[in-house]
Design a protein around this nucleic acid. Structure first.
Length: 430
RNA sequence: GGAGAGGUGGCAGAGUGGUUGAAUGCGCUUGACUCGAAAUCAAGUUUAGGGUAACACCUAACGGGGGUUCGAAUCCCCCCCUCUCCGCCA
């Protein structure tokens, strides 16, 4: 949720910054509704003040022995009834305004950071740095789905039978490799200060609204219609909502969490895109990092978060680059975002494997996650950040392609060997 | 699925129509006493919106919504959630 006060105080600057995302936003209407609503609220609270006064007055008189039939009391009752009548006109009006305002506000994306590069779409994203030597195969390199099939690491057709297209079953060493990756990632993040959690995979509407997936992206999530529950599209949702409607003590910050969860996405509108392999599935595994921090530290925390995600790629010795998203490519709730893109030699290109965003107070405002210093008067919204650390299926894809040997086997990255208890994945290995 | 109990401030826990935003206890903050601490005493200690230069001040909120009343945490109706026991179940 955007900061209405900020918009009210400086509509021009606010609008200019928001429009860097591209597209148009009806801020005028919001300001108008806001002004009307506040005017009504003032009117209403004046009437209510008088009504409260009468209530107290009548109470005092009756207690002191004045009979209820006394004309003075009768006059007060008449006045109060009149006020009630006026209020019953005002209240629905105000409520309606408030609801419309709220509805509109929920559709406005976050303000991009001042430092976010301005651009129209992903072609104008800015490469920040590269790491590792790109593996340029001398002979034709196989795409990971062919490697997986040859080594018996997955089962595609049967998965379609069991579920649908865009679902896969990992098999034998494929399943083991996925599990090893998850455990390696969690162990690593835990050592680096993140508290591991294993959250619910179904969440309610309030939770999805708080992190920004609803109301705008309802068609992207799987819903259990009978229960007001949705399958999580990312662990970001349950993790961020752990602290929904809480006021934290300032000393509790920063809070770091990591979690492994499956993620479920309908991938509506991506028909024909990445139909093969592990890149785009309805269900995939991800290790997620989430931070709750003091606003003053959020920029530095963001850089550190990216470094934590990068650390996994470096440990696995997978070449990657860091790209900063431009304003036109920024996610709905993000104010600033870096993508990590891993090198996929078969396609000869980089593919997103992690997305690390700073949401500022956008999610915190929706989720009402606040903090308070010991001697501080009011409350303040925390800043929330999260990033993949990493998308596990895509990591497996990158390993298969980058680690395939001339003999067709896949070498196991050193850091995973203790988990898998072998150095190569071959045909007979499973 | 069946039966019952309950949802009040950071926590515990009173409160069945009247000046109760809410007793009391715990916790926390500040002050007094003390060389210091403990103990003791005193004061303070919810959130949101509006309003103000800043205070003051006003409004709302006792799970949510509606109703009765001059007045509701307290009475009535609907909904939600939690807990316990039984059944079922990984």
């Amino acid at each position: 949720m955007i900061d209405l006060k900020q918009l009210r105080e400086n509509p021009q600057a606010f609008g200019d910054r928001l429009r860097r995302r591209g597209g148009d936003f009806d801020l005028e209407r919001i300001l108008e509704l806001d002004a009307q609503q506040r005017q009504l609220e003032q009117q209403r609270s004046r009437l209510q003040a008088r009504s409260n006064e009468i209530g107290a007055l009548v109470g005092r008189k009756i207690k002191s022995g004045v009979p209820p039939t006394d004309p003075e009391i009768q006059a007060l009752k008449t006045e109060a009834n009149d006020l009630k009548q006026q209020l019953s006109d005002l209240e629905p009006q105000e409520r309606q305004l408030k609801e419309e305002l709220e509805r509109l506000l929920l559709t406005i994306p976050n303000l991009p950071s001042e430092t976010t590069p301005i651009g129209r779409d992903e072609t104008e994203n800015v490469e920040v740095r590269r790491w590792g030597d790109e593996y340029k195969p001398t002979q034709p390199c196989q795409p990971h789905w062919d490697i997986a099939t040859q080594l018996g690491l997955w089962e595609v057709e049967r998965s379609v039978k069991v579920a649908q297209s865009r679902f896969v079953t990992l098999w034998g060493m494929g399943a083991a490799l996925e599990r090893a990756l998850i455990q390696f990632m969690l162990d690593t993040h835990r050592e680096r200060g993140y508290v591991e959690v294993l959250p619910p995979l179904l969440v309610n509407t309030a939770s999805l609204t708080a992190t920004g997936q609803l109301p705008k992206f309802a068609e992207e999530s799987f819903r259990c219609a009978d229960d007001d529950l949705w399958l999580i599209p990312t662990a970001e949702v349950p993790l961020t909502n752990l602290y929904r409607e809480e006021i934290l003590a300032a000393e509790q910050l920063p809070i770091y969490h990591c979690a492994y969860t499956p993620c479920f996405r309908r991938e509506a509108g991506s028909y024909g895109k990445d139909t093969r392999g592990l890149i785009r599935l309805h269900q995939f595994n991800k290790v997620e990092l989430v931070k709750f921090v003091h606003p003053e530290t959020s920029a530095a925390e963001h850089e550190a978060l990216v470094a934590d995600a990068e650390f996994i790629l470096q440990a696995l010795k997978l070449p990657y680059r860091v790209v900063e998203l431009c304003t036109g490519d920024l996610g709905f709730a993000a104010m600033k975002c870096y993508d990590l893109e891993v090198w996929l030699p078969a396609a000869g290109c980089y593919r997103e494997i992690s997305s690390c965003s700073n949401f500022g107070d956008f999610q915190a405002r929706r989720a009402k996650i606040r903090f308070k210093g010991a001697k501080q008067k009011g409350t303040q919204f925390v800043h929330t950040l999260n990033g993949s650390g990493l998308a596990v299926g895509r990591t497996m894809a990158a390993i298969l392609e980058n680690y395939q040997q001339a003999d067709g086997t896949v070498r196991v990255p050193e850091v995973l060997q203790p988990y898998l208890k072998c150095s190569h994945i071959g045909r007979a290995a499973s």
